[in-house]
Nucleic acid binder design. Structure first.
Ligand code: MN
Ligand code: MN
Ligand code: ZN
Ligand code: ZN
Lengths: 148, 148
DNA sequence: AGTAGAATGAGAATGGTTATCATTCTAGAA
DNA sequence: TTCTAGAATGATAACCATTCTCATTCTACT
């Protein structure tokens, strides 16, 4: 396909559906959503996402589980993710918006989007409760009341 | 495995090799490197990386191609990546080091590491050369000298 | 030494993504 | 309008990094 050709009906539909979403979607989830709008093959969904990405209309990140997630280029979400339980917390604002313009201006590189994510342990996972009774060898009942 | 147990010989070896690297490695590349140091099964490499990650000793990101890349927790590299040719340019410094401490302090979340990457088109890919002669229908030679 | 739990290795299974290829569209040319 | 080359599409096979399974080996502790 030519890099700068008008979008096809399918590509348009994929873009439209993505722009209605509040959070990133996987290609497969998108494929299922398209059934009610503009049914198309799974391969076509992947190809449409590629085209849209190359045209700066869609952004693409890969979760730690290896799943590709897509969203409108206008979305700007960032997460704090726990490595233990997988739970994610959304940051209340993007800390690098400025920087993007800066890179844009100073260099010979056209920036479309960025990824930013913090990883670590959430409160509960960082301070696990005392071992559950079933895993404790109770040799002396005077030490078995769960203090930490 | 217990979350806070001393590292095994294999886990130690994986960590040591990772700390010698200048750039992130895939699990498979690491597996091949281990042959000359401390041969172990591929599954063990994956498991070791998991343990090290959960202990805040190793960081983990996933490339756009879906390949997991690992590096020492002390590495702090960020890239500007071209969506068309795949070429990556290393940023000369990390723009969010401060922010990480900030999140650390203000919240109830223990931050181990972060990812940050910019995507777009590099100079050559953003301004492709005139179409190659073989793809051009030359109907009028007066317009065929490649100006943009 | 005896034992329970953890670690390990080999290989099978998984599953998201990509490649293949025959068919259908589509935008221009004639 | 009709023709035609190139692009897009869909069904499905292939790919391949990662995870799962399970029998075996270690390791720390009694
Ligand atoms: Mn942002
Ligand atoms: Mn950094
Ligand atoms: Zn957690
Ligand atoms: Zn490029």
């Amino acid at each position: 396909m030519h890099p700068d050709r008008r979008l096809t009906r399918n590509q348009d539909a994929v873009l439209a559906v993505l722009q209605e979403q509040r959070s990133p979607l996987s290609a497969q989830a998108l494929y299922r959503l398209m059934r009610d709008r503009q049914p198309m093959g799974l391969a076509t969904v992947y190809r449409a996402l590629d085209v849209l990405k190359l045209n700066g209309l869609v952004q693409h990140r890969v979760s730690l589980e290896g799943e590709s997630l897509y969203s409108s280029i206008h979305q700007d979400l960032h997460y704090l993710t726990c490595l233990h339980c997988g739970q994610s917390f959304v940051l209340d604002h993007c800390p690098v918006e400025r920087l993007e313009d800066q890179i844009q201006t100073s260099g010979s590189f056209k920036v479309y989007y960025h990824t930013l994510e913090f990883f670590g342990l959430c409160e509960p996972c960082a301070h696990p409760a005392a071992p559950t009774p079933s895993t404790v060898h109770v040799d002396d009942e005077s030490t078995a009341d769960g203090e930490v």
